[in-house]
Simulated assay, not measured.
Amino acid sequence: MKTALAAELSKLLSLPTIWIAVAVGILVAPVIAAIRSFQELSEITKGVHTAAEYPIGLEALGFGVQGVIIVGIIAISSEYFTESEESGGGRQITTSLTANPSRIRFLLSKAAAVATVSAILAIIAITLTIIVVQIILVEHAPAFGITDISRIIGVVCYWVLTALLALGMTILTRHAALPLAVLIVNTSFVTVTYLLTRITPLANYLPDMAGIRMLLEIKDTGSTLTPLLGGVVMAAWVTALLFFGTIAFCRRDV
């Protein structure tokens, strides 16, 4: 399993697109946090506030998750790219399954590689975001204490689960377009699932709306989901997607 994981990590990190994912994952949250911090500093200077409010930084990390969405998608979609004629015109998936005949172990290795890369990106993004907020707001910056550690852990869990959600969707579809469109749009500034909570409270149990509670308090959607329960709900969605994706992957001709 360690050899398979090392192979999948090496393969994932060799993809040109991974560096786009890394850039998005590392830079988006700090940039948004910087913009929000300058806005907050302006309001503090004008006397509107005396100190920055809690969501600065953590709120921005909800958008940086787009980087790990790309990681989860390309981890499996890259296997289906047709190689050039000079390389034989085949697909990577054929070579991968020849080297690792167990399809379940192959997918477990993929999931472990995606989770590892996503967790590392989350930790880097969290660190940079906190530093940016502290540098800009200085003494006005929100204090991060013991009580915020669970929120920071929640960010890492949210990023990892989101990446695995993207992986599961891509395993089912075998294409990057649909998961990329659905997940990127839904984590942009217009969150479709958030709008759905205005129509039905059941939308609170969709994976992203449940999971986001691990890092942010959302009080206007008619739900009392706690961060822990939200994480459990999101993990259940991810488990189901990966389970059915694995069944489909094992049954079909690649």
Score class of each variant (00 low, 15 high):
S42L: 04
I149A: 12
I247G: 00
F249M: 04
V31K: 08
A6R: 13
A75D: 15
L241E: 13
Q134V: 13
A7N: 02
I18H: 09
I76A: 14
V185T: 13
H175F: 05
E43P: 02
T95M: 11
V160W: 06
A112K: 01
H140D: 13
A240S: 03
T127H: 02
A51K: 13
M234C: 09
V114Y: 01
N204I: 03
V160Y: 06
A240T: 00
S77L: 07
I171G: 06
L228Y: 09
M214I: 03
A177E: 07
F106G: 09
G230M: 00
A111T: 14
T191L: 14
T197W: 08
D253P: 10
A51Y: 08
T187Y: 13
H140P: 10
V156K: 11
A23K: 09
I130N: 09
T173G: 00
I126S: 08
A248C: 00
G62C: 01
E139T: 14
F244A: 11
I74M: 03
L228A: 12
A181N: 05
M209L: 12
H49T: 12
E86D: 13
A177W: 04
A203C: 09
V190A: 10
V238M: 06
V254L: 12
I104A: 03
P207M: 01
R91W: 08
I126R: 04
A248F: 04
I136V: 03
L206Q: 14
I70V: 03
F38Q: 13
